[in-house]
Computed example of a mutant assay.
Amino acid sequence: MNGRAKVIAINNSWQLVPWADILYACDFAWWERYRGVPEFEGLKLSVDASACRRPWGIQKVGLNKHDDGLELMKLGTVGWAGNSGFHCLNLAVQMWPAKIILVGFDMRVDLGLHWHGPHKGLNNPSQRNVERWRRCMDAVAGAIREFGIEVINASPTSALKNYPKMGLMEAMEC
């Protein structure tokens, strides 16, 4: 290990952190729209088999679509919970880090859909979607703590309730 934090970018977030270690998107339509993001040099992951069959260099992540909880028995497989953020949290937990910092996990639509605005021509979250996402994310907080992994929510406007909140710089220092 080089001691550097590992960074997982979700969907368009790779544009904010083009040096991320991993780019994850669960939706084939997103991968297709961005043609597999050829300019991203890190590991590309998805649960979508169609995206992984394209010549874009995307590696397959398994999906337990029958469970909205964490998948810990099969490494490289995630619980469903309906969103990429949960999938990435599940993958990060499988890496057994000491700490996970959530950035951009607002889990709400009343302040806007995404930092980059709505996806054009792709699905965008509804209030019903984000309610489920919050419920699933908050439901696994206790289990993650029991594994000795600290999860800090550095998303200033996040609606998540079960993760301590602090600013990004403070979260990275503690």
Results as ranks from 00 to 15, higher is better:
residue 49 A to S: 12
residue 49 A to R: 13
residue 49 A to K: 11
residue 52 C to H: 08
residue 52 C to P: 03
residue 52 C to D: 04
residue 56 W to R: 06
residue 56 W to L: 08
residue 58 I to G: 01
residue 58 I to M: 00
residue 59 Q to Y: 08
residue 61 V to C: 09
residue 61 V to Y: 00
residue 63 L to R: 09
residue 64 N to V: 12
residue 66 H to Y: 14
residue 68 D to M: 10
residue 70 L to H: 00
residue 70 L to S: 08
residue 72 L to Y: 06
residue 75 L to W: 12
residue 77 T to C: 13
residue 77 T to Q: 11
residue 78 V to A: 05
residue 81 A to T: 06
residue 83 N to K: 08
residue 84 S to T: 10
residue 84 S to P: 01
residue 85 G to V: 00
residue 85 G to K: 01
residue 90 N to K: 02
residue 96 W to K: 15
residue 97 P to T: 07
residue 97 P to M: 08
residue 99 K to R: 15
residue 100 I to C: 09
residue 103 V to S: 05
residue 104 G to Q: 00
residue 106 D to L: 05
residue 110 D to N: 09
residue 110 D to M: 03
residue 110 D to C: 05
residue 110 D to W: 00
residue 113 L to A: 12
residue 114 H to I: 02
residue 115 W to G: 07
residue 115 W to D: 03
residue 115 W to I: 14
residue 115 W to L: 13
residue 116 H to R: 07
residue 120 K to A: 13
residue 122 L to E: 07
residue 123 N to A: 15
residue 124 N to W: 02
residue 124 N to L: 01
residue 125 P to R: 00
residue 128 R to H: 14
residue 128 R to K: 15
residue 130 V to R: 01
residue 131 E to A: 11
residue 132 R to W: 12
residue 133 W to T: 02
residue 134 R to V: 06
residue 136 C to T: 00
residue 136 C to I: 00
residue 139 A to D: 10
residue 142 G to E: 12
residue 143 A to Q: 12
residue 145 R to V: 13
residue 146 E to F: 09
residue 148 G to D: 06
residue 149 I to H: 10
residue 149 I to F: 04
residue 151 V to L: 07
residue 152 I to E: 00
residue 153 N to M: 11
residue 153 N to F: 07
residue 154 A to S: 10
residue 155 S to H: 05
residue 155 S to I: 01
residue 155 S to R: 04
residue 156 P to D: 09
residue 159 A to T: 06
residue 161 K to A: 15
residue 163 Y to R: 04
residue 163 Y to I: 06
